[in-house]
């Protein structure tokens, strides 16, 4: 038990050190308190937010957008990446779009999406999906290209048709790379959700962040940012948990 606690402290020592430094600066008071409020007051506000019903309403709306956008991206991106590794014409078709589309700040498209789909969840989910597609397709494709071709040959040898080979061999053989892509995508999904809610929304934790910052009380903003960080951490950890169930054989 004690060992577990010690391990956790060692793992997150940089964060503890960061908090400690922050607290020292806030305590010494070299910088204005408005910029560097004590973490104790930040945590106080954080607790207030967490016990409020409005936060959970906003959080559930944001989570809905994050998870739906992310799942659509996974459902489209994984098969696309796998198929690109098998069918050359598809690869030649998609690769240029990836190289040109990747450096574009896709958030810039958001006003257009709002114009078409409105400020509700649709435009936000679409942007999240778009954002998540890139790491998922790219990781899946390169992972599938590196799959030991003997697995594919062996399955063909046993009489598997393309469909069976694709879902029963290529997909499981690529799961480690797929999860790498999903792990890169999940924080992006959260960031885009919060960002688009900050730009235009009447609900969601991004909206709540903007609303709280209009009060010009720094503690509110910091508490909210910290909360979003915790939410992101929980999302990534859940994905790790699922990953370990899937890739038990590695």
């Amino acid at each position: 038990m004690l060992k577990k606690v010690v391990d956790k402290v060692v793992k997150y020592q940089s964060i503890l050190v960061f908090f400690l430094l922050w607290e020292i600066i806030a305590f010494v008071g070299v910088l204005p308190e408005r910029l560097f409020p004590s973490l104790f007051s930040v945590f106080g506000v954080l607790l207030e937010i967490v016990v409020s019903a409005i936060f959970w309403d906003n959080l559930s709306i944001t989570m809905y957008r994050v998870i739906v956008g992310f799942l659509i991206a996974a459902a489209l991106g994984v098969p696309l990446g796998l198929m690109m590794s098998r069918y050359n014409f598809l690869n030649t078709l998609v690769q240029p779009m990836l190289s040109i589309g990747y450096p574009i700040p896709r958030v810039a498209l958001y006003p257009i999406l709002v114009f078409i789909l409105g400020i509700g969840s649709g435009s936000k989910i679409l942007l999240i999906t778009l954002e998540c597609l890139f790491p998922i397709v790219i990781s899946t494709y390169y992972g599938a290209m590196r799959v030991n071709h003997l697995f594919i040959w062996a399955s063909q040898n046993m009489g598997a048709n393309d469909r069976k080979m694709f879902w029963k061999v290529l997909l499981p053989a690529t799961t480690p790379a797929i999860f790498t892509g999903l792990r890169m995508a999940i924080p992006l999904a959260l960031i885009i959700a919060v960002l688009t809610e900050m730009i235009s929304s009447t609900e969601g934790i991004g909206y709540q962040l903007v609303y709280l910052s209009s009060s010009l009380v720094q503690e509110n903003v910091l508490a909210m940012v910290l909360l979003i960080g915790i939410v992101g951490y929980i999302l990534s950890s859940s994905l790790d948990f699922i990953q370990n169930k899937f890739i038990f054989w590695k």
Partner: peptide, 28 residues
């Protein structure tokens, strides 16, 4: 093309690492 009339044993192991021994043999 490849087919189950010829059983191939490759130079390196081509067993599926995500399947146990039984399922590997049963898959074909």
């Amino acid at each position: 093309k490849p087919g189950p009339d010829r059983g191939m044993m490759f130079q390196e192991s081509a067993l599926f690492p995500w399947k146990n021994v039984f399922d590997n043999v049963a898959w074909g």
